[in-house]
Each structure stands twice: as structure tokens, then as C-alpha cells.
Nucleic acid binder design. Structure first.
Length: 455
RNA sequence: UCCGGUGUAGCUCAAUCGGCAGAGCAUGCGGCUGUUAACCGCAGGGUUGUAGGUUCGAGUCCUACCACCGGAGCCA
């Protein structure tokens, strides 16, 4: 049986067999205590043996064992039940240089041993919560009739424009084919043109939203930026819903409901792990999540946000003014101090936003929205898409983009164009938010960052 | 990429003004009547991130580089 099921059902008086890894061992001449963990939950199962029974067995921290015995009420207060052990056999011994101790390790050290860190309490909890969230994402959209779309990972469209891209080629880079002038002959590469890893599935999602209706993507995303922060990865997972016959307000309604659903799933299914995070990682975490599970999020226009920031202008390193993008310090002030919770900032100046965002009637702003949350910052970026052919074409031209590259994107506006909207939610940032983990590298199994792709 | 900080035993950290490199945990051995990061005793364990430099003498001061952390930019 798995330890989670044993503890949940409290089968006192039953004989059970468990398999797992030894977390710690304490022994006296008479009695030996072995704490066993099998990853099914945070709690260990305490095994109690007559010391004579374990004579000669090397069962240090990390050893894989199988044990059986009688489940009894524990006389000590720290655990409700324990296993009065009758047999114990070693499945896999552990060398004496096993790096994980029962003491607390630094997250930086554990990151260097990513093949072992899921065996540490913190990371077991992180990845169980991450799993709950991933399942909840699909459940949320499935219950609402959204179509799950697998957007391509390799792309040849250079109109994504969301950042530096990783190139994909099967050329021998020491000696690539060249044309008569000596330039690399990309037309002879695998896809007949330069290709790269996707930076967003949004444009493909728009194709499906304007044919099959509401849909979403949930897949890996790649950015080759030289970003070195606690909230950026070169490979991360993003959820991008795209909704048909919808405007920006519908988009925010969806985003808000989505985040609340994810928080509720975590509270419903991950409470034992949340208690660990609340106690060890971020005090007050559970209260905050409970508060947000039912709260509606603040919505404020960019213009009003600037006015709010100007009132506190002296405290900022960078003075806020209309037309400038919000600095991190501005975003943190809004979400952490003014509203103390998630905030949607909407209707940004069009000059600082992407070409595909719908131009508002004032012709100065676009129907964009960013959702800011405490500690993490921007967790969602979204917009209503420009569905008017003429307006979109003018935006492409004004920004100096190559019209021909966008032929199929423009086609969607020529054939039965509809208002539609969507957003991207950074999955790891969501995991950070509900666990309180400070560094994004600690909420993805194997982080990829500049200079690091180990394991 | 920019600014700031840190780098000492397997891990977490001390080391005063430039003057004998230490502790706890982990590991090994022994002890201990039910432990809870168990406890008690003993033992082994070091190219002080790397390469130079100053000095009678450098973990400590100087230069360069590397790694990590925090903040910024880019964004999700």
C-alpha cells in the first residue's frame, strides 16, 4: 500500500506491506525507529522494530526497503499511527556518501542534484502541487467545453515576435551547405527555410478559435533571452486559452475564474503540502489562497494606474508617466501595497504593446490586459485581438513589419472575422504563487536557464 | 546583459587587526528501555571557487576570470 492511503484510511489492526525510502533512523539497544517515505504524500510512516530484528542490516537514510507489520495507534503524539514492524528487507542499499541529510539543505545545493531533489520534502511537495495544478488546468477547460489544441513546437513563422528564438536545424554547423555567394543555404535545411522553437501558441490558437470555437494550448515554450532572474526560464510551460465571439472583459472574466479554480483545486487536494509551505516557505500562504479563492480581482486601466502611481511618485526609482511601460517596482506597488492581491491592468498605450492587440476607440490605447500578482509579478498577459482587417493591416505597416509574413493571419480577418480574445498564463509562475517558492528554477523538474541544461 | 553581494570539510556555517583553519550535521565505530532534525562518547574528513599579485606571513588585501544569490532589463 502507499503511505498516503494508509494514513488516510487509518487501518488500525491490519497487516500491511509498504515500500519506500528511509528518511531517517533512530535506534536504542531495544527499539529502532525507521521513518519511511514513498513520495505519495509529505508524511512519513514510522516503522518500529525490535533492534535485534535489524541486526546487521545497513538501513541509513536513502535506503530502499520493503517492510510489513501491524498498523497500530502510536503512543507518541507526533503521528497517529505507526507500523509495528515484523519483517524488513532491503531493496536497494545506499552508499554512505548519499548527499541528502535529514537536516535542511539550501535550495541552491539541491538544484545541483536535481536527480535526487524530488526526495527532499520541499520538492516532493512542489511537484505534487504542480501535478494537481496541471490536472486542474485540463479539468477547468474540459468542463467548459474548450478544445485542447496541441500547438506546434517547431515553427517557421517569424511573426511570433515575442523574443529571441532557439534555431532548429539539422545542418552540420561546422560545414553547412552554402549558396554560390557563400551564404548559408537555408532553403536546403530540413524545413526548406529557417525554423525555430515556438515562443507562443497564440497565433495557431487563433486559427482554431475562429473555426472550432473556444480552445486552449498547454505546452512547452522557449525563449532564448539571456534572462537571469527568479521568474524566467528558457524552457517553460504556458497555458494559452483563446475564446471566440469575446471581448476583453470576457477575457478577464475567464482569467479570473481560471486562477480561482486552480487555487481551489490546490486547497482541496494539496492541503498537507500547503501546510508545509505555509510553515516553512511563506507564512500566511493558506489564508491568502483561501481569501483569493472567492474574491474578485481588481481591474484598473493603465491610465488610472499611472495616476495612482503618480500619487506615490517619490518612492520610485523610475518616475511613472503616461506612455512608459510599468516598471517592476510599479507593478509590485500596485499588487502588493495598493490592492494586496491580483490586479488586472488594462488598456495600455498602443506604442508599447504588440501589433495584434485591438485598437481602442481613443486610437491611443489597445485592449490589452496584464494580471499582476504579489511576489511573482506578471502571471498573465492577454488581449482582445484586432479582428478588423484594415486596422490590423495598418498596424502591421506602421510598425514596419513585413506584410507578406502575416498573410494567413490577415486571411482570418478576411473570411468571417469575429471578435476574439485570449491570454497566456505562465504555468511555473502559477506554481510559484500557490507554493510561495521564491525561485522559478525550483518549481520545474529540470530548469533550463542560460548556461544550464543539466539532467 | 547591467548593478550589488557571496564563494572555507559531503552539507549549513564560524575564523576579531593580515599571524597555529574550527563547530554542528552527515559518515564510520561504540553506548543508550519508545524516539521525533533523538541523545552520549570516540574517529576519519580541507589545493579556503580558479589563475596571478602584494607581504616575513594571505581564508582575510589587490587584479582578472568562473559560479551562485538578490535587484534591474526582456516577459509568462
Amino acid at each position: 500500500m502507499r503511505i498516503k492511503d494508509i494514513l488516510r484510511t487509518e487501518r488500525l489492526g491490519e497487516h500491511v506491506t509498504v515500500k519506500g525510502w528511509v528518511r531517517t533512523r533512530r535506534n536504542s539497544a531495544q527499539v529502532t525507529f525507521v521513518e519511511l517515505n514513498d513520495g505519495s504524500c509529505m508524511s512519513n510512516l514510522q516503522l518500529v522494530f525490535d533492534s535485534g530484528l535489524l541486526e546487521g542490516l545497513n538501513i541509513g537514510t536513502g535506503t530502499a526497503v520493503e517492510a510489513s507489520g501491524l498498523l497500530v495507534e502510536s503512543p507518541a503524539p507526533k503521528q497517529p499511527v505507526e507500523l509495528r514492524g515484523e519483517t524488513l528487507s532491503i531493496i536497494g542499499e545506499t552508499a554512505s556518501d548519499y548527499p541528502l541529510q535529514k537536516k535542511r539543505h539550501s535550495l541552491e545545493f539541491l538544484r545541483d542534484i536535481a536527480h535526487l531533489r524530488p526526495r527532499a520534502n520541499t520538492f516532493g511537495a512542489v511537484f505534487r502541487i504542480r501535478n494537481i495544478l496541471a490536472q486542474a488546468v485540463h479539468r477547468f477547460f474540459h468542463e467548459r467545453g474548450f478544445l485542447y489544441l496541441n500547438a506546434p513546437i517547431i515553427t517557421t513563422s517569424d511573426c511570433e515576435g515575442a523574443g529571441e528564438m532557439f534555431h532548429v536545424t539539422n545542418f552540420n554547423l561546422d560545414d553547412p551547405p552554402r549558396d554560390p555567394k557563400g551564404a548559408v543555404a537555408w532553403d536546403r535545411d530540413f524545413f526548406g527555410k529557417p525554423a525555430a522553437l515556438t515562443v507562443s501558441g497564440q497565433l495557431e490558437a487563433e486559427i482554431f478559435a475562429t473555426s472550432l470555437g473556444n480552445c486552449y494550448t498547454f505546452g512547452p515554450t522557449f525563449r532564448a533571452e539571456n534572462s537571469n532572474t527568479s521568474r524566467h526560464l528558457a524552457e517553460f510551460w504556458m497555458i494559452e486559452p483563446e475564446i471566440a465571439f469575446a471581448d476583453l472583459s470576457d477575457d478577464m472574466d475567464l482569467a479570473e475564474e481560471f486562477i480561482r479554480a486552480l487555487i481551489r483545486a490546490t486547497l482541496d487536494e494539496g492541503m498537507e503540502d500547503l501546510e508545509f509551505f505555509d510553515q516553512r516557505i511563506q507564512k500566511g500562504l493558506i489564508d491568502m489562497l483561501k481569501r483569493l479563492a472567492d474574491a474578485s480581482f481588481t481591474r484598473i486601466t493603465y491610465t488610472d494606474a499611472i495616476a495612482e502611481l503618480e500619487k506615490a511618485g517619490d518612492r520610485f526609482e523610475f518616475k511613472p508617466y503616461w506612455g512608459a511601460d510599468l516598471q517592476s517596482e510599479h507593478e509590485r506597488y500596485l499588487t502588493e501595497e495598493v490592492y494586496d492581491g491580483p490586479v488586472f491592468v488594462t488598456d495600455y498605450p498602443k506604442d508599447i504593446k504588440a501589433f495584434y492587440m485591438r485598437v481602442n476607440d481613443d486610437d491611443k490605447t489597445v485592449a490589452a490586459m496584464d494580471c499582476l500578482i504579489p511576489r511573482v509579478g506578471e502571471i498573465i498577459g492577454g488581449s482582445q485581438r484586432e479582428e478588423r482587417y484594415d486596422v490590423l493591416l495598418k498596424r502591421i505597416q506602421d510598425l514596419g513589419l513585413v506584410e507578406a509574413d502575416y498573410w494567413w493571419y490577415l486571411d482570418l480577418r478576411r473570411y468571417g472575422s469575429i471578435p476574439h480574445a485570449g491570454f497566456g498564463l505562465g504555468f511555473e509562475r502559477m506554481v510559484q504563487f500557490v507554493t510561495g517558492m521564491a525561485n522559478i528554477r525550483d518549481v520545474i523538474p529540470f530548469p533550463r536557464t542560460p548556461g544550464n541544461a543539466a539532467f
